[in-house]
């Protein structure tokens, strides 16, 4: 089974069903069985408390449109910890969502993220953390793999997924190699050959997950990173979906 662990739906806030309906035929053509949705109908880098609530509710509505195909994550923000914890209680502890998304409003190494990380650990759900290390310069609140390593070291009981393999994937994957509560998704960059093999080499196949960062990215270009990788069939099955099933408790 193929699980795409990193999807964003874009469209009108009140037209979530249409966005889901548009996406699924493309997933069908590539045999992608499940897709994990995060953030809202449009990217909001510095959301206020109300916005993380409405964005998370958007994700819940998306999941309700296709409960057998879509899973979702709470949009948490270290700038709005109380609301983040409330959303996690409402939509994870007492609801259908499977984890938490941290994006770029503040670096994840900031202690303000600690209550969110601790509660995710209590709930037994992972946190998908945006990471990049750009030669051209990160945005002020954008986390690197080093930031994630700090957070994950402080919260060994919590599972983390390092989105984009840290962007600079050679550096990112090496940075977190020994921190076993961090997995990595392969999504969001151009399909540079060797990335998936490098992840399997440094983290082990059981810690590498397929994701696409669609709908901005192509489902196909990112799936090609796994289908085209020189890894064993057993490792490919883990990366394509078995790891996501285990990590997100699907």
């Amino acid at each position: 089974m193929i699980v795409d662990c990193h999807i964003h739906l874009y469209g009108e806030p009140d037209a979530v069903a249409a966005s889901v309906e548009r996406l699924l035929p493309y997933a069908d053509r590539l045999d992608i069985a499940k897709l994990i949705v995060s953030l809202g109908h449009a990217l909001c880098p510095k959301p206020d408390a109300a916005r993380i609530a409405t964005d998370t509710e958007y994700v819940v509505r998306a999941v309700e449109c296709a409960p057998d195909r879509l899973e979702g994550l709470v949009y948490a923000s270290p700038n709005h910890v109380d609301m983040s914890l409330k959303l996690m209680e409402r939509h994870i502890a007492s609801g259908p969502l499977k984890g938490v998304k941290l994006w770029i409003c503040r670096k994840c190494s900031d202690p303000a993220c600690d209550p969110i990380a601790a509660y995710a650990g209590e709930l037994g759900v992972p946190i998908l953390v945006h990471t990049w290390m750009k030669s051209t310069g990160n945005s002020p609140g954008e986390s690197t793999s080093y930031d994630l390593l700090e957070l994950a070291t402080r919260h060994p009981q919590t599972a983390f997924v390092m989105a984009h393999s840290g962007g600079d994937w050679e550096r990112g994957l090496r940075t977190v190699a020994d921190q076993t509560n961090i997995c990595a998704d392969i999504c969001g960059g151009d399909p540079e050959a060797g990335q998936t093999e490098y992840g399997v080499q440094w983290l082990g196949a059981e810690r590498v997950l397929y994701g696409s960062d669609a709908t901005g990215r192509s489902l196909a270009s990112q799936l090609g990173k796994v289908i085209g990788a020189s890894i064993s069939d057993e490792d490919r099955r883990l990366v394509l979906g078995e790891n996501a099933v285990r990590v997100f408790g699907l």
Binding site: L30, P191, A193, A220, S221, G224, I227
Partner: peptide, 10 residues
């Protein structure tokens, strides 16, 4: 430089 399969899957 890129995975050939990425283009094929498109």
């Amino acid at each position: 430089y890129q995975y050939l399969d990425a283009a094929l899957l498109k």
